[in-house]
Design a binder for these strands. Structure first.
Lengths: 209, 209
DNA sequence: TGTACATCAGTGAACGCGCGTTCACTGATGTAC
DNA sequence: TGTACATCAGTGAACGCGCGTTCACTGATGTAC
C-alpha cells in the first residue's frame, strides 16, 4: 500500500519560469518506462503521464506530439551511448590503440545489454533522408573507423580497409546483440557478447592481436 | 473505382467440408499485409479480415486469438526461408562446399531483403523457453555449421571452430541485414549486403577462398 | 501601496478511433431414418 | 422419397478498452502603472 503512495500523492507544480523542469521529468519517466517495457510498443503518452503523475494534456506543453517525445528520447539515448564509448576510449592509455578499440566496443555492447528497450529504439528510429555520415549511427561507425586507423598507424595490419573493417565490427556487434535480445537464454549471455566481439576484432587484424 | 470492386464484392463462402481453405486465405492476406506494412505493428485481426473480405469474427474459427495467427505466420515464414536456403544449397555442385555455403547465405540475405516485415517478424517472435538448438533460428545456425564442416573436410582451414564460425557468419549477416533495414538508403543497397557476407565468409577461412 | 492585467504551469473532460474478442444468429448442405 | 435434425461456414452487432489529441479552464505568480 505504502509503495503506491507516490501514485496518489499530489505533484507540487514547478515555480514560475521553471516549467522546463517538467520536460526533463517527462523524458526521464519515458526512459524508465521504456526500460521496463523493453520495447517501444506499449510506450504511450498516457502511460508516461501516469508515470510522471501529471495529466496527459500536460505533455503537450513540452512536446508537440508523440513523435517528438520519441525523438527526444532517441537523442537522449544517443548522447548517453556516445558518452559511454568516449569514456571507455579515454580510460585506456593512448599507446595501445587496439585496447582502446576493444574498450569502446565493450562499452557499446554493455549499453545494449543494459538497455535493450533503448537500444532497439535508437536502431528503429533513424532520421530518414539525412546524410548517412552525419547520422548518429554513421558517427558511431566513423568512430570505430578512426580507432582502427589508429591501430594501423601503430603497425597492426588490417585484413580489410579500415572503413570496411569498421562496418564489419559494427555490424557484427549489432548482430550479436540483436541475437542476444531475441534469445537471451541461448548463447552464453552477456559474457558471450563481449567475447564474440573480441574475437571479431581479432578477426579483422592480419596479425594475432 | 473499379479497383475497389473487390472490396465491396461478396465473397462466396467455401463449400461444405472445405472451411480450412479460409485459414490459408487468412494467412496469405496476413502475409501480404505484413509485407505492405513492413513491420508487425499495425497488423491487426480487423485489418486482416478486411483484406480477406470477411468479418473479423470469422478469423476466430481458425485461430484462437491474435497470438496464434502471428504464430501461424511465423511458421509459414520459417518454412519459406528454410526452403529457399535448401534450394540454394542444392543448386550448387557438391564438390564446391564453399560455393554451397555462399549460396545458402545468399538466399538467407535475399529473403531478408525481399521481405523486411517477415524477417523482422520471425526475429522478434522466437518461441521462448525451448531448447535453443531446436528453435528455428538455432536450426539455421546448425545448417551453417554443417556447411562449414563440409568446407573443412574439403581442406579449407577455418580460423575459428566450425560452430563458432557459423555464429560469426550468421550474426554478421543478420547485423548487416538489420542495418540495411534500418537505413536502406545508406550503404550500398542489396548488393552491399551480399558482398559484405561474401567478405565475411572469406574472413573465417584461414586461406584465401 | 494598490490594482488591473499578463503570463505561467498545469488540468478535466471530452472527442473520435481502432482494437481484440464474444455471442447469439443465419442459411446452406449434409445425414439418419 | 420425404423429413427432421446435425453440422458446417460465416456474420452483425455489440462489449469495454486504451489510445492521441484538443479545448476551454484554473489558480498562482509576476509586471505595469
Amino acid at each position: 500500500m505504502t509503495e503506491q503512495a507516490d501514485l496518489t500523492a499530489q505533484r507540487t507544480r514547478n515555480p514560475w519560469g521553471q516549467g522546463e523542469k517538467l520536460r526533463v521529468e517527462i523524458l526521464a519517466a519515458a526512459a524508465r518506462l521504456l526500460s521496463e517495457l523493453g520495447s517501444e510498443e506499449g510506450l504511450s503518452i498516457r502511460g508516461v503521464a501516469r508515470a510522471v503523475g501529471i495529466a496527459p494534456a500536460s505533455i503537450y506543453q513540452h512536446f508537440a506530439d508523440k513523435a517528438e517525445l520519441v525523438r527526444g528520447l532517441v537523442n537522449y539515448d544517443y548522447e548517453l551511448l556516445g558518452k559511454q564509448m568516449r569514456e571507455a576510449d579515454e580510460s585506456v592509455p593512448a599507446d595501445d590503440p587496439v585496447a582502446r578499440l576493444r574498450a569502446q566496443m565493450g562499452a557499446y555492447c554493455q549499453f545494449a545489454i543494459d538497455n535493450p528497450g533503448h537500444y532497439r529504439l535508437i536502431y528503429n528510429n533513424r532520421e530518414r533522408g539525412g546524410e548517412p555520415a552525419k547520422s548518429p549511427l554513421g558517427r558511431i561507425v566513423l568512430r570505430i573507423a578512426t580507432a582502427l586507423e589508429r591501430c594501423e598507424e601503430a603497425g597492426h595490419e588490417l585484413r580489410q580497409p579500415a572503413r570496411r573493417a569498421a562496418i564489419t565490427v559494427f555490424v557484427g556487434a549489432h548482430g550479436r546483440v540483436a541475437l542476444y535480445h531475441a534469445a537471451p537464454e541461448a548463447g552464453e549471455g552477456a559474457a558471450g557478447i563481449h567475447s564474440f566481439v573480441d574475437d571479431l576484432i581479432s578477426l579483422v587484424f592480419a596479425d594475432q592481436v
